[in-house]
């Protein structure tokens, strides 16, 4: 049997993701704190390909944006997104991925000697951490109380 080329593998991955999306209404990349809804809508908004994988304690939706940035959305078994993480050369649209929490974070007070390349915000249950510089960003936002038992904060990346 001829080994699959990386192009074939990408196609298989894409088809698998689409098949799961079609056969499993409710499985979708969505927005922090909200239910899994249409993967197509969010993915189209972010111009990405999507890969969905079942971990034992959550489902992981991994979107690779056309800029090369990878966005991972962590969905609990209750069907709600409890964390979003990103890594890559350009920031993703956080207003889209953080939903109603975006404005909360944007208006949160900052303290300490402000640094251009690092930010950490904690507003009660809500945590945002971002680090990086031009051409390389890495960060995440999560709802601490919604992290499933058995999942470490360190797994959210």
């Amino acid at each position: 049997m001829t080994p699959l080329s990386s192009r074939d593998l990408r196609m298989v991955t894409l088809c698998t993701a689409l098949l799961i999306a079609v056969l499993s209404p409710g499985i979708a990349a969505a927005t922090l704190g909200e239910p899994e809804v249409s993967v197509q809508a969010d993915s189209a908004k972010l111009q990405s390909s999507v890969k969905i994988s079942d971990q034992s304690l959550y489902r992981l939706h991994e979107m690779t944006l056309n800029t090369g940035t990878v966005v991972r959305e962590f969905v609990g078994l209750d069907g709600k997104v409890f964390a979003v993480a990103w890594h890559g050369p350009y920031m993703p649209n956080l207003r889209q991925t953080l939903g109603k929490y975006f404005d909360t974070l944007a208006s949160a007070p900052r303290s300490g000697p402000r640094d251009r390349n690092h930010v950490q915000i904690q507003q009660g249950d809500l945590v945002l951490q971002n680090a990086g510089h031009m051409r390389s960003f890495s960060g995440r936002a999560y709802l601490a109380s919604a992290i499933p038992a058995g999942v470490a904060v360190g797994d959210l990346h």
């Binding site: 690092h118 890495s138 995440r140 797994d155």
Partner: peptide, 12 residues
């Protein structure tokens, strides 16, 4: 010095 989550894999 400030904190940076280990899972972000950086020392800045």
């Amino acid at each position: 010095a400030g904190t940076l989550p280990a899972s972000l894999s950086g020392f800045d």
